[in-house]
Each structure stands twice: as C-alpha cells, then as structure tokens.
C-alpha cells in the first residue's frame, strides 16, 4: 500500500462493498445537515473532486497532458440535455448514448494523438477544448448558443424527483463510483502499466506494455468518466452554458492535481478541495487578492514542492515516525 492513502478506506475488516457503502452514506448524510448554500457548494465541490480524481489518473498516473477533460464534461452535460429534452429519448437510453458519444470522441482524439509524442496530445486536446466552445457558441437552437440551455429539470424516476440534498447523494454515488473504478484500475496491472508508460515508455514497451493502447484506454476511460460527471452536473443547476466547459477550468483542474500532488488520489482530493474552496474562504478576508494567493500557491507548488501537498504530508509523517 502506498503511504498517505485514505486511512478510512484502509480498514481491512470490512468487505469491499461495505466500505464503499459506508463512505457513500457518510458523505451523503452530511448534505442533510447543511443549508441550501452549503449544500450547493458541497455538490459542486464533490463534482470537482470527481473530475480531479479522473484527471489525476490521466495526467498524474498515466502522464498524459490533456486539456480536454472539461470538454468531455461538457459533452456529457450537453448530450444528456439534448437527448432528453430535444430528442425525447428515454432516460437510460439518453445516458447510454451520452457515454457512447464521449467514448467516440475520446477515441477520435486519442488514437491519432497518443501515437505521437505527448506534446501533440496537449495540442490536440487544447484544440478540441477550444473547438468545443466554438461549437457550443455557434450551435444555434441545439446548444442554445452563448446562453446555453435552461428551462428543463431532472425527469421523474420511479415516480420520484430527486432534488436538494437527495441530489447531493447522487453526486456522492458518482464520486464513489468513479473513485472505486479508478482505485481498482490503479491497484491492478493496468495502473502499474500506466505509471510505467509515464516514467519510461521505452522500458515499459520492453516489459510487454502496449504503450499506445495503454494511453488510449486511459484517455478514453477518464474522458468517459468526465462525461458521466457532466451528465450529473447538468441537473445541479438545471442549466448548461459554455463558460463552465472552457479551457480556463481545464487549467484549474491541472493546477488542482499539481498542487495536491500528481499521481496520488489523495493529492487530487486535497488539491480540488483547496483550490475550489480557496476563493470562498479568502474572498471575505482579502477580497480580489484571493487570485494572487491562488497564483502564488500554484507557482510555489510547481517550483518548490513537485510532490504537491500530499508529498509535504508524506515528509511530515515520515519525519515523525
């Protein structure tokens, strides 16, 4: 076991499923003790954490510098809304179509670009991210243009409409689902192959790792997970619009993973929590200077603490023991 994982998840006595269940219940229950505002911030925070975990797998564990994560988040969000309320597909079909769309786009980007050097993936995904925003803005009545789409809400499932703290529970399920998949992958031969590809692709190939295939799978899988998260996001405020899915947030996600500690799940969680909440905490104290604090933090992490905050924690706990 790697040091610094969630202590909570390490309890060995419980069976796997029970562990996840308890985590989900605890995280969801918290929502019922919060006001509307804190619940909303909590929901959006959980979504960022979900995205950061997925992006950490792609960037931190597999070493792929991609800027398309938010585009896939957006493809998921827009597609579920369009499939449900413009094409009037049944809910499960709409979800499956949304996932299929993300996988299709991910393969279309990953297959040509992962065969080239990492730099080209960065360029290709940057282009995709930009193109996606253009398509959203120019998409006429389908995407709603710059204003996006609003005026819809989550359809009733089994005669119930999930809302408020119950919807927070849905997001918790998404997070636990995403994390359990990523954790299983990371703890398997696949996760090790990803890290090997990141550290030394030539040696990885000599050890029998299909480098291109590993990259394509990691990219497609994390992109599809981002798409699923996007579908959940679409019903948080019941509106989707272009600024959410732009390059700016893609960079913020990258910074979260770097500041928290790339390659570590706990790092991604810490980075996402810290950088998402930072403006909320600091804004009342220092006003617009929170942007400055943010910049300093990111630069300091890159220059002085490449292992991120989780690396700092490791050093601290090692020196104590």
């Amino acid at each position: 076991m790697r040091a610094g994982g969630f202590v909570f998840f390490k309890t060995n006595h419980m069976s796997g499923l029970l562990r996840w269940l308890i985590a989900a219940v605890v995280l969801s229950a918290a929502a019922f003790f919060m006001g509307e505002y804190h619940n909303d911030v909590y929901r959006k925070l959980l979504l960022w954490v979900t995205l950061a975990l997925g992006y950490n797998f792609l960037f931190g564990i597999c070493g792929q510098v991609a800027f398309s994560h938010f585009a896939f988040y957006g493809i998921g969000a827009y597609s579920i809304v369009i499939f449900l309320f413009q094409l009037h597909l049944p809910f499960p079909i709409a979800v499956l179509c949304g996932i299929a769309l993300c996988i299709l786009f991910a393969l279309a980007v990953a297959i040509p670009s992962t065969r080239l050097e990492g730099f080209y993936l960065a360029l290709a995904t940057l282009a995709l991210g930009q193109l996606f925003i253009v398509v959203l803005n120019e998409g006429g009545s389908v995407t709603g243009g710059t204003g996006g789409i609003a005026n819809y809400r989550l359809p009733e499932l089994f005669g119930m409409r999930v809302r408020g703290p119950w919807y927070t529970g849905v997001i918790v399920l998404l997070l636990v689902f995403t994390y359990s998949i990523l954790k299983r992958l990371d703890d398997s031969w696949f996760g090790r192959a990803c890290r090997a590809v990141r550290d030394n692709p030539e040696a990885a190939a000599a050890m029998g790792v299909d480098v291109a295939r590993t990259k394509v799978i990691a990219f497609t899988l994390t992109s599809a997970l981002a798409g699923v998260a996007g579908m959940v996001y679409a019903f948080v405020d019941n509106t989707v619009n272009p600024p959410i899915f732009g390059i700016e947030n893609a960079f913020l996600l990258l910074f979260m993973v770097i500041v928290g500690g790339a390659g570590r799940h706990a790092g991604a969680v810490i980075g996402a929590v810290l950088l998402f909440l930072l403006p909320f905490w600091l804004s009342p104290l220092v006003g617009h200077h929170h942007a400055l604090v943010f910049g300093v933090l990111v630069v300091a992490a890159i220059l002085f603490q490449p292992g991120g905050l989780i690396g700092l924690w490791d050093r601290f706990s090692r020196s104590r023991s």
Partner: peptide, 8 residues
C-alpha cells in the same frame, strides 16, 4: 451566463 445560472 452567470446571471442566467443564478436565475435557476
């Protein structure tokens, strides 16, 4: 778009 999302 921020104003729009507040509207929800």
């Amino acid at each position: 778009p921020a104003t729009q999302q507040q509207q929800t």
